Computed example of a mutant assay.
Amino acid sequence: MNITVLGCGRWGAFHAWYAHHIGHHVTLWGRPGSPHLAELISQRRNEYMTLPRDIALTADLTGALAGADVVIISISAQQLRNLAGQIKGTGLTKMPFILCMKGLEIGTGKRLTTVMKEVLGPHVRTIVWVGPGHVQDFLAGMPNCMVMASDNLDRTKHMANLFSSPLIRFYYGKDLLGTEIGAAAKNVIGIAAGMLDGYHYTSLKGALMARGTHELSRLIAAMGGDAMTVYGLSHLGDYEATLFSRHSNNRRFGEDFILGKPFAKLAEGVYTSQALVDLSDAYQVELPITRTIYEIICHQKDPLEGLQDLFLRSQKEE
């Protein structure tokens, strides 16, 4: 099977490595001028892994898509609409596209599969691949469970079976909306967890987990999804990797924010908090944790006061 991976950052490089690891022919694409691609071309490695020599590296999008049986997209969620437009320009849109990002489009609050349909047409075959795991752990041989979901169960099963291995076991997600919202929202909860770590309030993560899943289940239900999806691998199942792991960019962003340290890596939860607040307003569903994180990051709300209001001051029914 010929697999093309679009995006050569940490996760894109890993998805290329993984697809090769389980026996596929792989092409890895990066944007022209990408420092990540330049590093991989010159050294065949980045700070996390060494890529096998027979993974093709290219900045030619048309060439990368030509002949691909499946395309994996692993970029920032906020760049998807632009990249989808470039893909449309190549005319190569008939193959399945697997989205390995967790986020919502800011300004619209739209799910990433919706963005794909808007740009590439209603018949585009899109699958999401989400769930717990870190590049560093997978490369060390630590297995995990993840989930794939789409609007067609047979397609979901086919892709999950195609990519399953002893390293990653895939489950079939039947609720695409809930899977996408839950996967995006867990990054916001991860930022909240890091802020608690920054204040040495780590013991409050239990309350954060309980309340975080509850508020997102209400939003998913209001949007027409299954409220129980949030308790699966896309959201609650990803909490260990996002709320506790030293590898979690979102958790580290939250902790460094409190400690006043600069953080240069991508923390997708920053953008997702804004998109979720917009959805909260549109569907009239209260998201107190999400809104507090958004106000702290984007509107300079006092973080200690905001977190204490959430967990230590209010008295209400559970």
Score class of each variant (00 low, 15 high):
Q136D: 08
L279R: 06
G237P: 07
N249E: 15
M148S: 02
A185V: 03
E240P: 02
K102Y: 10
T213Y: 06
L259P: 03
T242K: 07
A160F: 04
L259F: 05
L162P: 00
S273T: 04
D302V: 14
S164V: 03
N82A: 10
V5D: 12
A13G: 11
W17V: 14
P52L: 15
L57Q: 05
T4Y: 12
G224Y: 05
L219I: 04
Y231R: 14
F97P: 06
I73A: 06
N46F: 13
A16D: 08
A68E: 07
G63V: 10
C145N: 03
L219A: 01
L236R: 10
N46D: 15
C145F: 11
P96N: 04
Q315S: 14
D309M: 07
I296Q: 00
A59R: 08
V71R: 00
T290V: 15
H214M: 13
P288L: 05
A84T: 04
L204I: 06
D278M: 14
V285D: 05
R313Y: 14
T272D: 10
L57G: 08
T213F: 09
Q43C: 15
R125K: 15
R31F: 08
D154C: 12
R44I: 11
L196W: 05
A16I: 06
G182F: 02
V5Y: 09
T179R: 08
L236W: 11
R45E: 12
A56T: 09
C298F: 15
L120A: 11
S248V: 02
H123A: 15
L176R: 06
I220G: 08
A184P: 07
A227F: 09
R291F: 10
Q315P: 07
P32A: 02
K110C: 09
L99M: 02
V119P: 01
K110H: 11
F97Q: 07
V230Q: 00
E317K: 12
G173I: 07
A160I: 10
R251Y: 01
G107K: 04
I72C: 09
T229H: 09
A140D: 00
K110T: 05
T58Y: 07
G198Y: 03
G224R: 06
K174L: 14
N2R: 15
G254Y: 02
L196Y: 03
G206L: 01
L120E: 09
